[in-house]
């Protein structure tokens, strides 16, 4: 039979802004070994932690519909920070890639 190994399945995760901080640490970006931002830490008590759906190791493909592909670390993290800061929305939508 066929065995599926490491299929990347994009998942949309909506994180409500329910705490003062988003609370994720990310590494990566264009021109590094990790070409898309990858979650390395989730801080306790933060919005990401309370939401409960983000996980260490997940890769962020899009933020509020904006693709992070090709963005260097500084630009990608700025997109994430501004999505959390804006008062236009009381949530941030992440398109996440996770291995199933």
């Amino acid at each position: 039979g066929l065995t599926q190994v490491g299929i990347m399945e994009p998942v949309l995760i909506r994180v409500p802004k329910c705490a003062s901080t988003l609370g994720i640490a990310v590494e990566g970006g264009a021109n590094t070994r990790q070409t898309l931002p990858r979650i390395t830490t989730i801080q306790k008590g933060s919005s990401a932690h309370i939401c409960g759906r983000l996980r260490v190791g997940q890769v962020i493909l899009e933020v509020n519909g904006v693709s992070l592909k090709g963005m260097e670390h500084r630009d990608a993290t700025r997109v994430i920070a501004e999505a959390y800061k804006t008062k236009d929305k009381d949530f941030v939508d992440f398109l996440i890639a996770e291995f199933n």
Binding site: A25, V26, E27, R33, Q34, Y84
Partner: peptide, 15 residues
Amino acid sequence: REKRLTLPPSEITLL
């Protein structure tokens, strides 16, 4: 001859 792609590690940012 083997060609290796060496990219630098990334910094980590807390958001």
